[in-house]
Amino acid sequence: MHNQITPGNTRHVATLFHQEQNVSQHRNTHQSAAMHAALLVRSQYSRESKSQFRRECLDHLKASLAPVQKASA
């Protein structure tokens, strides 16, 4: 069998792996921030503070589901 990988294929695989890592890190970062905001909701006394942390939690959850935006140079 022929098991050699052409140079062009390794770069493509490495790029896909790097993109997957970015997506995973993006998702984990936003989900952690959402959990933090959710935990802060219950320690708040005012309705405004609770609403603020609920919005923050939902914003981070939505961001964790959104595709990763490529950073512009």
Rank of each mutant, 00 (worst) to 15 (best):
L40T: 06
C57L: 06
R11N: 03
L39S: 11
L16S: 04
A73Q: 04
F53S: 09
L65F: 04
A71Q: 10
I5C: 03
I5P: 02
A37E: 09
V68A: 01
V68T: 05
H36A: 07
S24M: 05
S64R: 06
S49V: 01
R27W: 00
M35R: 13
L40E: 15
R55M: 06
K70N: 07
T6W: 09
R54H: 12
V23F: 00
H36P: 02
Q21A: 15
R55W: 00
A34C: 09
T29N: 12
F53G: 12
L65C: 14
S51E: 12
Q19R: 07
L16G: 01
H60R: 06
D59V: 03
A66M: 11
M35S: 12
Q52W: 11
H30N: 13
Q21I: 15
F17M: 06
N9L: 05
N28M: 05
M1Q: 02
L39E: 15
Y45I: 07
T15L: 04
R55T: 09
Q44P: 06
Y45T: 15
A34N: 07
Q19S: 08
I5W: 13
H12F: 08
I5F: 13
K50W: 02
P7Q: 05
S32T: 08
T6V: 08
S64M: 08
H60T: 12
N22Q: 14
K70T: 10
H18W: 14
N3G: 08
Q52P: 00
G8I: 08
K50Y: 04
A71S: 03
A66Y: 09
V41S: 05
E48S: 08
